[in-house]
Design a protein around this nucleic acid. Structure first.
Lengths: 213, 213
DNA sequence: CTCCTTGTTGACTCATTAGTCAATAGATGA
DNA sequence: TCATCTATTGACTAATGAGTCAACAAGGAG
């Protein structure tokens, strides 16, 4: 489908891709102008439409490319994680995600935006694209690590996994925003996030109420 | 500023407002056409620009109007809540929010969208608008209801409030989506949400691990 | 009825943009 | 060298949309 584009020399491909990523993540689908893309990338309008046929296809290609990049990077790093304790592992995984989210922040922004607010007429494509990502680190897998024998009878494993993921993701997102606003170093926010994560994990593990209630 | 619009007969005002809300919430700022608004509302293009000067002002006016409507409605209902127990109260409040979110779903969608993804050049206005909403049901207030004497020493009140709000909001949002997708009744999703909330509250109160660990 | 004010119209301008296509440049092979 | 094919160009089209403005309508006030 995009063979003509793909057989371009890597250097030129990268130049075009990075301009597109910048433009789309900055101004969204509608407001991004193909004129601006072509002039910034130093190519003609004709050739862009020759490669991708239309703006919609270009956008889908770029979003999918970003999704893949992020996914690959996260998977690569997660594969190294050996920790078997559920809570420790979730923590490590979430900190990896945070790092990647910062390293690929434009890509993350673009994919998040595209999935949450698909441009008119792309709802189906985005759903399809999202599915490719769902299973790249399944909750099922985490679920298996949770030792059910240690859980209280009222605590269903799915709820524990869900609450934990939700809480940790919220914490890391908060710090990502801080990182982007000010100029704290990555190491610093990871350290802060790590401490806060520990406290929330304690809360989830042992609750907030004194046991004699 | 918008005196000319505001002194219109209520009926005509409502007609215009509701068309704008529909269009903006459906297609977002950029894609919404003032031509379409005027023709659907049965008014001329000239008069729309006479009332609001430009599209940006119109959008801000509509978003603020929606924000106010939602806020007023929630406040009205929350004022009736007498429950003093923190967890019970948070639950009631969140279920009220869920009801209002469903009743005013277009308005909610519009405001959420506008705040999360402000159209180019409206970032400041949106921040300002958000601030008006922040304190309409402060976490501070909820904080006061949390009896600190009952908490374990590791559980900081802010974290308990935060985790609770986050969890419950996520649950209600999940059910709102279900409601919008299928055709379950409001009563039914509120009942389901209520049960699930109870389980998460138990988890937050007493944790998931058996105490002898 | 006439003058004035205020509300309202919609055809028009001007800028922008996705997408096209005839023409050109460059490469390949005979 | 010439012929053929592919890659690339950029001026052009057609559509759309925000914002303007001269003109018209309505409703008093005198």
């Amino acid at each position: 489908m995009y063979a003509n584009f793909e057989k371009l020399p890597e250097e030129k491909k990268q130049a075009i891709l990075s301009v597109c990523i910048e433009e789309f993540s900055d101004t969204g689908f509608e407001k991004t102008s193909t004129d601006r893309i072509t002039s910034r990338a130093g190519i003609s309008k004709g050739i862009l439409f020759h490669y991708f046929k239309n703006k919609k296809n270009l956008f889908l290609y770029i979003v999918d490319y970003c999704r893949q990049q992020i996914g690959d990077q996260i998977m690569k790093e997660i594969k190294e994680v050996r920790t078997e304790d559920f809570f420790e592992r979730v923590k490590e995984v979430i900190l990896i995600k945070q790092r990647v989210q910062i390293e690929y922040y434009r890509e993350t922004q673009l994919v998040t935006y595209a999935v949450l607010h698909p441009p008119a007429g792309m709802e189906e494509e985005m759903k399809h694209l999202l599915q490719k990502n769902v299973d790249y680190y399944s909750e099922e897998y985490l679920n298996k690590l949770l030792d059910k024998d240690l859980l209280q009878e009222h605590a269903s494993p799915e709820k524990v996994v869900n609450l934990t993921m939700m809480a940790l993701e919220q914490i890391t997102n908060k710090y990502v925003q801080e990182y982007q606003a000010n100029t704290i170093s990555l190491a610093e926010i990871q350290q802060k996030a790590s401490l806060e994560i520990d406290e929330y994990l304690k809360l989830i593990k042992y609750g907030c109420m004194q046991s004699d209630t």
